[in-house]
Protein backbone atom coordinates (compact mmCIF):
# COMPACT_ATOMS: atom_id res chain seq x y z
CA UNK A 1 0.00 0.00 0.00
CA UNK A 2 1.60 3.22 -1.10
CA UNK A 3 1.41 6.28 1.09
CA UNK A 4 1.16 8.49 -1.96
CA UNK A 5 -1.70 10.90 -1.54
CA UNK A 6 -4.46 10.36 -4.04
CA UNK A 7 -7.56 11.99 -2.69
CA UNK A 8 -9.44 11.51 -5.94
CA UNK A 9 -10.16 7.94 -4.89
CA UNK A 10 -12.47 9.18 -2.16
CA UNK A 11 -14.28 11.60 -4.44
CA UNK A 12 -14.66 9.02 -7.19
CA UNK A 13 -15.99 6.54 -4.68
CA UNK A 14 -18.42 9.11 -3.33
CA UNK A 15 -19.58 9.99 -6.84
CA UNK A 16 -20.11 6.29 -7.53
CA UNK A 17 -22.51 6.16 -4.57
CA UNK A 18 -24.20 9.47 -5.42
CA UNK A 19 -24.75 8.57 -9.08
CA UNK A 20 -25.92 5.13 -7.98
CA UNK A 21 -28.65 6.56 -5.80
CA UNK A 22 -29.63 9.04 -8.51
CA UNK A 23 -29.75 6.24 -11.09
CA UNK A 24 -32.24 4.26 -9.02
CA UNK A 25 -34.64 7.14 -9.65
CA UNK A 26 -33.52 8.13 -13.16
CA UNK A 27 -33.30 4.62 -14.59
CA UNK A 28 -36.51 3.71 -12.81
CA UNK A 29 -38.16 6.65 -14.57
CA UNK A 30 -36.60 5.63 -17.89
CA UNK A 31 -37.98 2.08 -17.57
CA UNK A 32 -41.36 3.42 -16.51
CA UNK A 33 -41.58 5.70 -19.56
CA UNK A 34 -40.13 3.47 -22.27
CA UNK A 35 -41.38 0.07 -21.14
CA UNK A 36 -44.40 0.59 -18.90
CA UNK A 37 -46.16 3.59 -20.42
CA UNK A 38 -45.09 3.57 -24.07
CA UNK A 39 -44.00 -0.07 -24.45
CA UNK A 40 -40.71 -0.84 -26.15
CA UNK A 41 -42.31 -2.16 -29.36
CA UNK A 42 -44.38 1.02 -29.79
CA UNK A 43 -41.31 3.24 -29.79
CA UNK A 44 -40.88 5.14 -33.04
CA UNK A 45 -38.78 8.11 -34.07
CA UNK A 46 -41.92 10.27 -34.00
CA UNK A 47 -42.89 9.62 -30.38
CA UNK A 48 -39.25 9.84 -29.33
CA UNK A 49 -39.19 13.36 -30.80
CA UNK A 50 -42.39 14.15 -28.88
CA UNK A 51 -40.78 13.10 -25.63
CA UNK A 52 -37.38 14.68 -26.08
CA UNK A 53 -38.42 17.92 -27.75
CA UNK A 54 -41.77 18.59 -26.05
CA UNK A 55 -41.77 16.39 -22.93
CA UNK A 56 -44.99 14.70 -24.02
CA UNK A 57 -45.11 11.08 -22.89
CA UNK A 58 -47.92 9.27 -24.69
CA UNK A 59 -48.60 5.59 -24.65
CA UNK A 60 -51.24 2.90 -25.10
CA UNK A 61 -49.76 -0.16 -23.46
CA UNK A 62 -50.79 -2.48 -20.62
CA UNK A 63 -51.84 0.47 -18.45
CA UNK A 64 -54.11 1.78 -21.23
CA UNK A 65 -54.17 5.22 -22.79
CA UNK A 66 -51.77 7.49 -20.94
CA UNK A 67 -50.66 11.00 -21.79
CA UNK A 68 -48.33 12.97 -19.57
CA UNK A 69 -47.26 16.52 -20.31
CA UNK A 70 -43.93 17.21 -18.66
CA UNK A 71 -42.08 20.49 -18.90
CA UNK A 72 -39.74 19.84 -21.82
CA UNK A 73 -36.63 21.02 -19.97
CA UNK A 74 -37.38 18.62 -17.11
CA UNK A 75 -37.58 15.61 -19.40
CA UNK A 76 -34.45 16.75 -21.21
CA UNK A 77 -32.66 17.15 -17.88
CA UNK A 78 -33.53 13.60 -16.80
CA UNK A 79 -32.34 12.29 -20.18
CA UNK A 80 -28.97 14.08 -20.04
CA UNK A 81 -28.41 13.26 -16.36
CA UNK A 82 -29.32 9.62 -17.00
CA UNK A 83 -26.77 9.57 -19.81
CA UNK A 84 -23.98 11.15 -17.79
CA UNK A 85 -24.61 9.25 -14.55
CA UNK A 86 -25.04 5.84 -16.15
CA UNK A 87 -21.82 6.25 -18.14
CA UNK A 88 -19.91 7.38 -15.05
CA UNK A 89 -21.37 4.69 -12.80
CA UNK A 90 -21.01 1.89 -15.35
CA UNK A 91 -17.56 2.75 -16.63
CA UNK A 92 -16.09 3.55 -13.21
CA UNK A 93 -17.52 0.24 -11.97
CA UNK A 94 -15.93 -1.81 -14.74
CA UNK A 95 -12.69 0.18 -14.45
CA UNK A 96 -12.53 -0.65 -10.75
CA UNK A 97 -13.02 -4.35 -11.35
CA UNK A 98 -10.01 -4.25 -13.69
CA UNK A 99 -7.99 -2.12 -11.25
CA UNK A 100 -8.39 -4.84 -8.65
CA UNK A 101 -6.73 -7.49 -10.75
CA UNK A 102 -3.04 -8.00 -10.00
CA UNK A 103 -2.59 -9.43 -13.49
CA UNK A 104 -3.43 -6.04 -15.05
CA UNK A 105 -1.17 -4.04 -12.73
CA UNK A 106 1.17 -3.13 -15.61
CA UNK A 107 -1.64 -1.60 -17.64
CA UNK A 108 -3.25 0.52 -14.93
CA UNK A 109 -2.27 3.86 -16.50
CA UNK A 110 -3.34 2.78 -19.99
CA UNK A 111 -6.63 1.41 -18.70
CA UNK A 112 -7.35 4.70 -16.99
CA UNK A 113 -6.90 6.67 -20.20
CA UNK A 114 -8.82 4.11 -22.20
CA UNK A 115 -11.81 4.39 -19.89
CA UNK A 116 -11.69 8.18 -19.82
CA UNK A 117 -11.61 8.36 -23.62
CA UNK A 118 -14.22 5.63 -24.02
CA UNK A 119 -16.57 7.37 -21.57
CA UNK A 120 -16.23 10.64 -23.46
CA UNK A 121 -16.97 8.85 -26.73
CA UNK A 122 -20.06 7.26 -25.21
CA UNK A 123 -21.21 10.60 -23.84
CA UNK A 124 -20.79 12.29 -27.24
CA UNK A 125 -22.70 9.45 -28.89
CA UNK A 126 -25.46 9.92 -26.31
CA UNK A 127 -25.62 13.65 -26.92
CA UNK A 128 -25.84 13.04 -30.68
CA UNK A 129 -28.76 10.66 -30.10
CA UNK A 130 -30.40 13.32 -27.97
CA UNK A 131 -29.88 15.94 -30.70
CA UNK A 132 -31.27 13.59 -33.35
CA UNK A 133 -34.66 13.72 -31.61
CA UNK A 134 -34.40 17.37 -30.59
CA UNK A 135 -36.41 19.04 -33.36
CA UNK A 136 -34.79 22.51 -33.54
CA UNK A 137 -31.45 20.82 -34.15
CA UNK A 138 -32.66 18.03 -36.39
CA UNK A 139 -34.53 20.43 -38.74
CA UNK A 140 -31.25 22.13 -39.52
CA UNK A 141 -29.06 19.04 -39.52
CA UNK A 142 -31.25 16.29 -41.05
CA UNK A 143 -29.22 14.93 -43.96
CA UNK A 144 -32.39 14.41 -46.06
Amino acid sequence: MSTKKSNTAGWNWFLQRATGVALVVLLGFHFAVEHFIVGAHHITAENTVERITYGVIEGDHVLGQISINMPAFLYQATAILLLAFSIYHGMYGVYNILMEQDGLKKYRAQLKYFFIVFSIVLFIQGILIFLAFFEPFWEIYDPR
Binding site: T44, Q125, L128, I129, A132, F133
Partner: peptide
Amino acid sequence: GTGFWLGHEEYT
Protein backbone atom coordinates in the same frame (compact mmCIF):
# COMPACT_ATOMS: atom_id res chain seq x y z
CA GLY B 1 -27.07 5.89 -32.47
CA THR B 2 -28.76 4.82 -35.70
CA GLY B 3 -31.22 7.64 -35.01
CA PHE B 4 -28.46 10.14 -35.57
CA TRP B 5 -26.15 8.43 -38.01
CA LEU B 6 -28.74 6.86 -40.32
CA GLY B 7 -31.92 8.87 -39.80
CA HIS B 8 -35.36 8.62 -38.22
CA GLU B 9 -36.94 6.08 -40.58
CA GLU B 10 -34.07 3.63 -40.14
CA TYR B 11 -34.23 4.15 -36.39
CA THR B 12 -37.89 3.14 -36.28
